[in-house]
Design a protein around this nucleic acid. Sequence first.
DNA 1: TTTTATTTTTAGTTTTGTCTAAATTTAATT
DNA 2: AATTAAATTTAGACAAAACTAAAAATAAAA
Lengths: 215, 215
Amino acid sequence: MTISEENYIKVIYHLSLVSPKGVNTNAIAGMLDTKASSVTDMLKKLSDKDLVSYQKYQGVTLTDKGFFSAKMIVRKHRLWEVFLVDKLGFSWDEVHEIAEELEHIKSEQLINKLDAFLGFPVADPHGDPIPDAKGVIKKIEKQLLSEVEINASFHCVGVKDSSTDFLKYLDKQKIALGSVVKVIDREDFDDTLTVEIDGKRLTISNKIANNLYVQ
Amino acid sequence: MTISEENYIKVIYHLSLVSPKGVNTNAIAGMLDTKASSVTDMLKKLSDKDLVSYQKYQGVTLTDKGFFSAKMIVRKHRLWEVFLVDKLGFSWDEVHEIAEELEHIKSEQLINKLDAFLGFPVADPHGDPIPDAKGVIKKIEKQLLSEVEINASFHCVGVKDSSTDFLKYLDKQKIALGSVVKVIDREDFDDTLTVEIDGKRLTISNKIANNLYVQ
DNA sequence: TTTTATTTTTAGTTTTGTCTAAATTTAATT
DNA sequence: AATTAAATTTAGACAAAACTAAAAATAAAA
Ligand SMILES: [Mn+2]
Ligand SMILES: [Mn+2]
Ligand SMILES: [Mn+2]
Ligand SMILES: [Mn+2]
């Protein structure tokens, strides 16, 4: 597989988690910042290689082979992110781009040794689960902070949006994975939350709460 | 720079250490396992980018810009090799290919943090020097074991040939970087050496001695 | 159910990096 | 100095991955 093919497969994987009955050409183009016509070309190529099943105008799904490949790329991406944060001291908003390159390094032995070196982590720095060497993903229980009942306490376990802007906002508010969040109140008008994070009171918009996973 | 351009620049760098007045097209083709005509094409491209100075039929040399780029690629290659051996437990004959890919990861921050994580090593697992962030290479004093006087003791500090075959031979004989070598005798007829390695007596062909650096 | 809008595909180019075969230049031998 | 050999470059082609513009299919609206 070329780097380009891998990037397509990974994007189709992520999109198919949301639309399992078929991923649209335009959606892929949007994620990869390319043109729909380029996507069509690539889908034919991936179909020839039996990585996706594709019928014109009907969208695309991953084959078993494509699904496994996708999970291996995601595994590499997330393990490298753990390495960058835990071992090299990068912050969680700096690692995505670099992992986007590292995920294409070919050696299977490398990634398994890296996995062991990191202590077989189950989640990446953004709380996303890491597939194991066989492609098994341990499901992490989580709810959006925006959907949780009032007057209960939770742990932050992940982010839905991992844009730099959002992650830096969390840093500023000293919210990290593991932080304890108690929901004090929800404003009826706009769903603004009053919460206590590690004991400190804070007001949080619905947009924020809608991108933070807790458990 | 594309991956391909980087591979060419690095090969030109290595070859120009041996032939500083100009590197031949065929030599480059041989190292990269490609055709001379492909090399000519690429040399024009590199020349346009001011990475090499090139006149048809006259061979190429690196410009200052190309020379620095080459050293940064070598730096990355060798730091990743140290990582693979010291941190992930690869043996010294397994790391070259993987480093060949890792050396193309773009982030400068990444490589400097990796350098720090590894404790600013000055040599890679094969004894080759690692350029620092500014491109400065600390010269490692060394002689070939084949050229050393008799009845003196040395430390192994590097290999000239880092092929799997040679490295595996050294492993079998329990010769590693740091091993103490005492030269007992040199056979006049074929320059075979009798040596003591970490106290154990051993007979070594000239070809072996000619690929082992000591100090 | 037509008509219109949107999505997707096709057709035809472009760039990068490679190749083969032929031409040219330089080097080595008579 | 002429001939032969080797090295290098040019010319033309190809595959991968992208693009633009136009055509076709599907979905939405009237
Ligand atoms: Mn990627
Ligand atoms: Mn992540
Ligand atoms: Mn390389
Ligand atoms: Mn090395």
